[in-house]
């Protein structure tokens, strides 16, 4: 068992004929993922990286039995792509696309939820479970099969940290990039119970950043219900208020969303808090050693 993806994950790529769609279709296949179909309206009948392309999602799902979708469709059309995937019965949608208006995401989130579908993202690197499946764009090289779960609002910073975990001789169970937008389909709070239930995860790394209260909400969930060790890092301690730091969601507004309150909440909840990114793998390694001795 892993979180959300496994050997039975059959991936559909929406926007497969675009540059990103093509590059990452190849990378997902190299990871060992079953990429079973692609969709680009008007390009049906062609193939990309050996994957058959369809004009619409429903035909693609019927032909391929795809059960997860990764969306590379440009922001103005992403809402429609998501709704099409949900209507075709897909229940796991990874939205890689960035710059989707949050007003669209409000509708997408509640629509997907009403149909029992889960969104990861937008503006996210997706989800991967080493030796099982990857739905998204996390670089293959950073992974190694192991027992550390990873959830993060960031992309590259996560690759760096995951890579550090690998360099310490450890590996990951499942890694989820939740995305850097103010409205995300899956938040820390949504992901925590899945990692709690996952028998392949021994400890969890959480990479947060300034803006909003997702980390504070997570701290509450950790305190109340999460029994595994947590190592947390929050980016943006030095960020000034009122400035949007690269991610749409990374902004301290009206005194809310500072790193200090997040760190305090997580520490209070019993998480190990790293001051620097490079401390995360060190802390993880130490906890893993203790767990092994038990």
């Amino acid at each position: 068992m892993s979180v959300l993806v496994d050997h039975d994950t059959r991936v559909l790529v929406q926007g497969i004929t675009g540059h990103q769609g093509t590059v990452h279709t190849r990378a997902m296949k190299e990871f060992g993922t079953q990429v079973v179909a692609g969709v680009t309206p008007g390009k049906g009948g062609s193939t990309v990286e050996g994957v058959p392309v369809h004009d619409d999602v429903l035909s693609a799902v019927r032909a391929s039995r795809a059960n997860a979708s990764v969306i590379f469709v440009p922001a103005p059309f992403a809402k429609d792509a998501l709704i099409e995937a949900v209507d075709a019965g897909i229940r796991l949608c990874v939205l890689v696309t960035e710059h989707i208006p949050f007003h669209d995401m409000l509708v997408m989130y509640h629509y997907a939820r009403s149909k029992g579908a889960r969104i990861i993202g937008p503006n996210c690197p997706g989800i991967a479970s080493p030796e099982k499946a990857k739905v998204g764009i996390i670089p293959n090289v950073v992974f190694r099969r192991g027992r550390v779960g990873v959830i993060s609002r960031s992309g590259t910073l996560t690759y760096e940290i995951v890579n550090g975990i690998k360099e310490h001789g450890l590996g990951q169970s499942t890694c989820i990039g939740l995305g850097g937008d103010p409205v995300v389909g899956t938040s820390f709070v949504d992901a925590l119970p899945m990692f709690e239930a996952d028998k392949e995860t021994d400890l969890l790394v959480m990479v947060g950043e300034i803006g909003g209260t997702a980390e504070e909400d997570a701290a509450e969930e950790i305190r109340a219900r999460f029994t595994k060790p947590v190592v947390a890092y929050i980016a943006g301690r030095s960020a000034p208020p009122g400035k949007r730091m690269g991610h749409a969601g990374a902004i301290i507004s009206r005194g809310k969303g500072t790193a200090a309150t997040k760190l305090a909440a997580l520490e209070h909840a019993g998480a190990k808090v790293a001051r620097f990114p490079y401390e995360v793998p060190e802390m993880v390694a130490e906890i893993a050693r203790k767990l092994e001795r038990r």
Binding site: T156, L157, E209, A235, S238, M245, G246, R275, F276, P277
Partner: peptide
Amino acid sequence: IANGAGLTMATLDVLKE
């Protein structure tokens, strides 16, 4: 100059430290 908002923010934090 870094790639990714999280990594860029983290780099700022380390510098400040």
